[in-house]
Design a protein around this nucleic acid. Sequence first.
DNA 1: AAATGTGAAAACATTCACAGCT
DNA 2: AGCTGTGAATGTTTTCACATTT
Lengths: 275, 275
Amino acid sequence: MATGRTHRPATRSRGIPEATVARLPLYLRALTALSERSVPTVSSEELAAAAGVNSAKLRKDFSYLGSYGTRGVGYDVEYLVYQISRELGLTQDWPVVIVGIGNLGAALANYGGFASRGFRVAALIDADPALTGRTVAGIAVQHTDELEKIIDDNGVSIGVIATPAGAAQQVCERLVAAGVTSILNFAPTVLSVPDGVDVRKVDLSIELQILAFHEQRKASEENPGAGIDGSLPAAEEPPVVAKRAARNQAPAAGAERPASPDQGPDGDVPAVMPA
Amino acid sequence: MATGRTHRPATRSRGIPEATVARLPLYLRALTALSERSVPTVSSEELAAAAGVNSAKLRKDFSYLGSYGTRGVGYDVEYLVYQISRELGLTQDWPVVIVGIGNLGAALANYGGFASRGFRVAALIDADPALTGRTVAGIAVQHTDELEKIIDDNGVSIGVIATPAGAAQQVCERLVAAGVTSILNFAPTVLSVPDGVDVRKVDLSIELQILAFHEQRKASEENPGAGIDGSLPAAEEPPVVAKRAARNQAPAAGAERPASPDQGPDGDVPAVMPA
DNA sequence: AAATGTGAAAACATTCACAGCT
DNA sequence: AGCTGTGAATGTTTTCACATTT
């Protein structure tokens, strides 16, 4: 998932495994919930259950942070909340800009989780002049022209891209040039960035496709033999396959594609993007 | 059980590694773009670059699907598009329901990538009576009461949850009871589901927190001195390490020794939710 | 000559199982 | 007695490097 792997051991093995880092937010959320209920301590077993992992993994994860538990007792909730927050860098406030205020960008701006927990939406940016000045989630949308100034004025180092795919790379470059070094990309495109810049990607259609894969497998497990086209082209000639043997109900309006067997790049539906 | 007895080599054996499955959509997108430009063949090197991975990994991934390339030449773009689509189950049409039509749900409904590529939004569902009947992305929002009927009538097996966190588990249970076996969860909560049900999670604030972790590390690399050095003490620490972002800083609760759970609520907000 | 497909090695991640602390 | 912290074992993923095929 994480793109851009530019981390070196440098000195001491100060490196927490990436897989562990990815779970820390999960633990933090579970701990925060416990904290709100004034639960003073929690065992690895309980916390693991709340976070949806197993306890051995959790203990191993925590062991990379240090020894923050008490044998025979468990972990002090408040203390652990603080330690993990610190490890994640959430004890400081991160100003964030969101570029692309379409449906998705607006949803992100309204997302409560942003405002809490160390992140602050410093600005909303969009290329559409019709949007600038309008207010979304209590924040005025500013025009793309201002991008560099906004980044600079606010000391922004984290940017969120929620533009159409076609605009993403360009926006990315401007963000990076202006000083942003971490990007959360919602546009369905691969961003190329210089070393030292981190990119994380959230891609709806990829998630759905992964689900479809497993769903299909479930189906064929119950009903083997119903597979599509069992014939295995044992590496024959790569023919211009007549694709999509539509065997299902009619798709919604015009998502069909003409599969002319003779030639033609025939539009495979473009990788569309978020609004 | 069952499964596992592979007759012959060469063919796809059961069990494509999960890491590979997660990359197939990426390859598919890159291939689709090539297809649109009428590029007939592509090498592992080129395709890997377009997908943002390295070529050895790509070849290994493809080797799990079968031998679809031609040595000395590369891969036939159209053919590979078809093979990967088939493997992912995209040669059939998957009806999907979206539950929770707030900001996020609406954004998802409008997301173009949904309609294309084998997915079809079969229904939008929300608990708010004020919304039902209203149209979003050309689809009428229906009330939660209809959930079971909708699932059943449309043969839905994939559900998307975009409700507030508090409602997610309940919605999940109803979806599962009605026959849904794959869930894409946008609510920031851990869903518990019976065996056989797949859940994937998309969590904005987790992604941001992971970025913050790396961002923090970058900052302390340039500006050692006030870093997070794990071997040392907890207690206070001079926040505001970042080069940029010298804005506010967060709470920073006491967190001395793990002992007194007396105080706690430092106005820590709940794990908020979308919509 | 060019590029795939794949064993084998290396790196990384998870799980086990228990010694050691409270 | 209970629960953490961690080496060792196991499993998974990535990378290497090259024989094989066109």
